[in-house]
Structure formats: structure tokens, C-alpha cells
Amino acid sequence: MSTEGRSAEPASATNALESAGFVRLITRADGDALAASGLLASALDDSETPFQVTVAPTVAARSKRVHTPANEDDVTVVVGTADVVADADDVIQLATPDRPATLEAVDLVRDLDVTPDPVIALAGIVASGGDPGAGESEWLETAAREQGLLEQRPGVAIPTADPVDGLAHSTRLHAPWSGDRDATREALADVVDGDLADFDADDHRAIASLVALDVVGADRVTDAAAKTIGRALQPYVTPDGPFETLGGFADVLEATASVAPGTGVALAMGHAVRERALEGWREYGRRTHVALRDGSTGRYDGLFVVGIDDGPVEAVARVGAAYRSPEPAVLAVGDGEAAIATREAGSLGATVEAVARELTEQAPEADVGYDGGQRRGYLQFDPDVGETMIIAAVRELL
């Protein structure tokens, strides 16, 4: 049975890490978890504690790593749900379902007397679906502002200074031109004309207005789109960060978690992998928008289904729920994998686990893997499993 919602006691976790000879970090594959792992890895690096980071996309994959024999002084930190032996002294789990893993990691890092990078921490919180500076993250935003690492301006939250590049590949929005650089350039022709170095607040404001109008005026757009695009406007700029804005940083973390996890871990540790990360992010964004635009669709009571031939299913489900779905939940089904995303707050961990069990009962040979988090669920299965079976299981249990 997987465990969700149990985190290590602060004192015991701190003592375990301080005395560890080697630390294994095993993390789920999303931007929030990458940021959490990066903060912890950086703290271990500061203390010269050897470590290894592994990104594992399913509960079963993480559990297998946890139960791999280790040396006596090894400690394992799991970011996400996994099958963990209760009260195991050598395993620390960060898996509270209603709190970003990044905040769990921030607490642990501070207990180790290390100051977490506030920009990376805030990017992880944004990737989790949270708002920077809200609730527990208020002090992080304040610290970043006081250090000159964060400031707010008009515009759209993208990772690049070039608005054409940033908007074409962003998965924080979905417009008629998304995923197509030439179409994006044409759409921005009236407002992007000149040297980017000369851009001022009025230019950024004009771009934001155009983007918002194109998003909410698109065919098949839903009422939720206006609220979602609003969260991508008035971005926090990160003058000394690897990317132009905090929201853009979060978008790249999400992308690399899916397509280039090793690069994503290095990025979350503050290493200079910007160009490699952007390459993965561009391809991730392009495939997401093409798949969402070209995929087959079906509508059920409470569920919108997108069938795709190619593309990152989790991003398709997330962007679809935010901009295209007339229902509160989206199921994106690809070849051997599927994802669920919802607009409602709350963990999908229990739901996606129940779906996985249902599929396993119906098709024991399907080799179903799963993972769940805030507003997201992920499934892996044998490609021979029919889409109809998956839809039926999700409809019954969602």
C-alpha cells in the first residue's frame, strides 16, 4: 500500500541527514518535486554529503528504489508517494497531499541551517499550482524582493526575453497560435516591432493585452480560461535568475521533469543548464499544443477526454483543463500512458490509485503504474489496454 500524507518528524529527519554517509533522493516527475529535490541536493552539497538524485514517474518505480539494498549509513529521501516501511529510520518522506513538496523541502533545509534559494523555492510553488507570496510562501517572496531577486511588472510570465519564443512554447497559456513560432510572430507583429532591449512597461502591457484577448477569444474556449490567463499576467521578473520570469521558470521545471529530468535536477540546484533546459521546454510546449489542438475529444458528465497520438499527456491534460475543457476534469490518453487534471484544488492520489487497481483487476497483464499529486494523476500501462477501458475506470472513480 502506498503512503500519502506522512512526512518525517523535523528533528529525526535533520538528525538522519546530518549523520548520513550517503543520501539517495528519489523524486516524482513534476516541477514542484524537482524544485524540492534541488533545494535538498544543494543543502547536501553545501555540507559535502554525497548524494544521488533519481526522478521516478510512478509510485512503483519510487518504491523499488526505496527498497533497493543500501549501506548502513545511507539515508533515502522520497519526494512523493511510495511504499515505505512504517517508522523506517533511514527513510524520510515528503508526501503531504495538500502542501507543495517545495515547502516541505524548505522546512527541512532550514532545519539543516541552510538558507534556501527563494527564487527556486517560489518557482517550485508556482509549478505546484500555488501563488508566489501566498500563505506560507510570503516570507520567501519578501526575502527575494529585499535581495533584489524579484520584482513585478506588466506582461506575461514566460522564461525568455524574446516574447515570440516565450509565448509560442509556454504551457501556461493556450491561444490559436500556441506551439507555432511563425504564427506567434505574426500575431504579435503589431506590438513587437523593434529592439527587445528597448522594451518598456507599455510594450509588455500591450503584449499582455493582446495575449489575453487572443486566449479568451479563441474557438472552443471555456470560462475558466479568463481566470487562468489572469494568473500568467503581471509576472514576477527574476533579474538574476536563469529565466526572465518566475512563472517561466516554473514552466521550464515542469517541462524538464517530463522530457529531461537530469537537466531539471541540475537546473533546480542552480547549475548553468539554461540553454539545455530551454531546448527541452520548447519541444515540450510545441508537442503539448499540437496534441491538444489535433487530438480527438469526447465529453462525459464531469469529464472531458482528449485522445492523442504523441505529446506529454500530463501537460495536455493540465492545459486542456485550464483552457479547453467544458468539464472540470480532463483525461488525456496516449500510447501506453494517460493523465488526469482537474480545475478543483485537491490531491488526485487516492483516485488515480483506485483507477490503477480497477485497470489491473480488468487486465492483470496490463502492468499498470500510477502517480498522483495536486490536481494531477498519471497512469502507465501496456499499450494494448483499450482507451474505452481507461475512460470507464476514470468515469467511475473520479
Rank of each mutant, 00 (worst) to 15 (best):
A35Q: 03
V106Y: 09
A16S: 13
V252T: 08
A226T: 13
G302N: 03
D30P: 00
A224K: 14
G135A: 03
T222P: 05
G241C: 09
R110F: 02
D32P: 04
G298T: 07
P242G: 05
D30Y: 00
Y323M: 13
L112Y: 14
W281T: 06
D113Q: 14
D200L: 03
V305C: 02
D180N: 15
G38C: 06
T245S: 14
V216D: 04
V79P: 03
A321V: 06
R282G: 10
P312S: 01
A226K: 12
V290I: 14
L149Q: 13
P235I: 11
R287Q: 14
R181L: 15
A95Q: 10
A345Q: 12
A206V: 02
P116N: 04
L196R: 14
I92P: 07
H204R: 14
A338C: 01
L34T: 04
E387Q: 10
L188R: 11
T228R: 15
D200C: 04
V211N: 11
G247E: 10
A105G: 13
A321R: 06
S37C: 07
L40G: 06
V306I: 13
G334Q: 01
V305D: 01
E353Q: 11
W177N: 08
D131W: 05
Y236M: 02
T228V: 14
L173I: 15
E344Y: 06
H204T: 04
V211C: 10
F381M: 06
A127Y: 01
H289F: 11
D30G: 00
P235E: 08
A43R: 12
D162P: 14
G334P: 02
K227R: 15
L278F: 07
A332L: 02
G262Q: 08
T351K: 05
E365C: 04
D200A: 11
A105P: 12
L359M: 07
L398C: 01
Q234A: 13
G217I: 09
I26E: 10
L122Y: 05
L397M: 02
S296K: 13
H289Y: 12
A41Q: 06
S19I: 00
L278A: 10
L108K: 12
A224L: 14
S347T: 13
L196N: 07
E48P: 01
I125L: 07
E141H: 02
D165H: 15
N15R: 15
D87N: 10
V84G: 08
T49W: 07
A225S: 15
A218H: 08
E9C: 11
D113Y: 12
G241H: 07
R110G: 07
A36C: 10
E396G: 08
T160C: 12
V106C: 10
T160A: 13
A225T: 09
D165N: 14
L196Q: 13
T3G: 15
A56D: 06
A341M: 03
G247F: 10
V66R: 05
P69K: 03
